[in-house]
């Protein structure tokens, strides 16, 4: 059911955090995070609101500059350079872009550029970052939109699409740059319930094709079926982690048990179908 180790490559580490901490003022939001993600691994991050899931994901992309510790993307230090005296200094933007060249990110709010058409949204970085010729960028953008099932919307304005379609465009925009690692921050939380499935379907397909993925989600069904590993975050700590079957069936920590209990209770109140089956809709 879950992707096994066999799917993975030689176990090369794609993304790694060592002793990483993040504070906002006096408030320590992440504390001593150690995390290592292998090629083709799908890791889901779960946890209560405010536990630091977004901050962790954003720190892994250096959208937040972490305070202590280190993050490595395919072995390269992210966001900082070592100065000659051993201290670390913030990387220049070009260096930062270079280290995250193989990293894509999908946001809760899609963050499409509303003044550009769907196709232009996908083409923009191909033209300006990859330096592709217009024809080539056009062809690649269309092919990528096709992959998320939206080729026929290429000429539309983003605001004419449903939320689910917008999120699929955002995935295509990121995917067109052929990332090796994709980060998702609650990609379905801004969507009406009936639109969640189409986005999860695309993500599941990516996972099956061997994309390395880190997904912050409240969709336990997705985590249960697609993740290789689930991390439970609470108050800035990774409290528990492991394969979803173990984590969901036999939570070790009382906090995870309580979190899952709340979750199941809330869902069984409103849904006839078992909550864990949503992704199969």
């Amino acid at each position: 059911m879950n992707q096994s180790a066999a799917k993975r490559g030689a176990g090369d580490v794609m993304l790694e955090a060592r002793g990483m901490s993040k504070r906002f003022g006096d408030h320590t939001v992440l504390q001593d995070i150690n995390l290592s993600i292998q090629r083709s691994e799908v890791v889901c991050l779960i946890g209560p609101s405010g536990s630091g899931k977004s901050t962790l994901l954003r720190s892994l992309a250096f959208l937040e500059n972490y305070d202590d510790g280190e993050v490595f993307v395919e072995g390269e230090l992210l966001g900082y350079d070592r100065a000659s005296d051993g201290r670390r200094v913030r990387s220049r933007p070009s260096r930062l872009s270079d280290v995250r060249r193989n990293m894509g990110m999908v946001f809760q709010q899609f963050n499409l550029w509303p003044h550009l058409s769907v196709l232009e949204n996908v083409m923009e970085a191909l033209l300006r970052v990859r330096g592709m010729k217009r024809d080539d960028a056009h062809r690649l953008a269309l092919a990528t939109l096709e992959k998320v099932g939206l080729a026929e919307k290429a000429g539309a304005w983003p605001n004419r699409l449903s939320g689910g379609q917008q999120q699929r465009v955002a995935i295509a925009r990121s995917l067109a740059m052929s990332p090796a690692i994709m980060l998702f921050d609650e990609p379905t939380s801004a969507l009406d319930p009936e639109l969640v499935g189409e986005v999860l379907q695309v993500m599941r397909q990516l996972a099956e094709e061997g994309m390395t993925m880190v997904v912050v989600t409240h969709e336990m069904g997705f985590a249960a079926r697609v993740a290789d590993r689930v991390l439970f975050l609470d108050q800035g700590h990774i409290v528990e982690q492991g394969p979803p079957t173990r984590l969901f069936r036999h939570p070790q920590s009382p906090r995870l048990a309580q979190f899952l209990g709340n979750y199941l209770e809330r869902n069984s109140l409103f849904e006839a179908a078992p909550a864990l089956n949503r992704v199969d809709d």
Binding site: G104, E124, R128, S174
Partner: peptide, 8 residues
């Protein structure tokens, strides 16, 4: 942020 993550 989306643009920066795409390398712009």
């Amino acid at each position: 942020e989306a643009a920066a993550m795409l390398g712009m």
